[in-house]
Nucleic acid binder design. Sequence first.
DNA 1: ATGTCAGACAACGTCTGA
Length: 269
Amino acid sequence: MRIATWNVNSVVARTPRLLDWLGVAEPDVLCLQELKCSDAAFPHDEVGELGYQAATYCAGRWNGVAILSRVGLADVTRGLVGEPDFVDEGALFGAPQRRAIGATCGGVRVWSLYVPNGRAPDHPHFDYKLEWLAAVQRTVAAELTDEPFALLGDFNVAPTDEDVYDIADFAESTHVTEPERRALADLRSSGLAEVMPRALKGDRPYTYWDYRQLAFPKNNGMRIDLVYGNEAFTAAVRDAYVDRNARKDSTTGPPSDHAPVVVDLAFGE
DNA sequence: ATGTCAGACAACGTCTGA
């Protein structure tokens, strides 16, 4: 079974590339983030023609997540256990923000997550990020069994200093702080382990390169799209890699600023 | 020169968030 995750940065702008990639990579399950569209605007018919069912959880201009599957799509859950809302100076923003969807696909419980960015360590969005990660933890606690289980998505956290191109550029920045990394450690303490992908080129499996300042050609990347699985999941992993080719320009339109992470598994062997 | 992008609004450029 092949399970992948990809922050597409607008599924409307990315539909030709998404369809092309589905045909080339042939994932059985694909977790998507940053759809930036309504549920109705999602290309259900187009992915359906390629054999995929889709469960979406999105609304409008921001956020939005989905799970595509060609191996069944059951027990869809939208939102986390005790998920916080983003409140800034008393104002509520887009509650509930649509950032998490879970489903059972071919016997694997998967979650597609789009963790809040945080903006800056002293910004209310950063507190929201940490509270949101705590809700991920609660959801794991509520759902975890011995059956295969995995969280996949854009975590907006670089697990180690090696996961950014130059840690010196991240002083006073989000994505590399101790409390963010502690949230990942909490996931590990609760029985999940990270699936480390290999890079198809270079020595670091970055998953994100800013659009600006020629970050991609300079390989000024970050590894922030992550996969955490329980024992039943990680024991079945045969390969994992970042498909950086999907970050390149192509005839099917401009790329997302993220590349997909692909995990190949063999259950029952 | 953030060597950018996408979407919204009301255009046919300008703003915003990331």
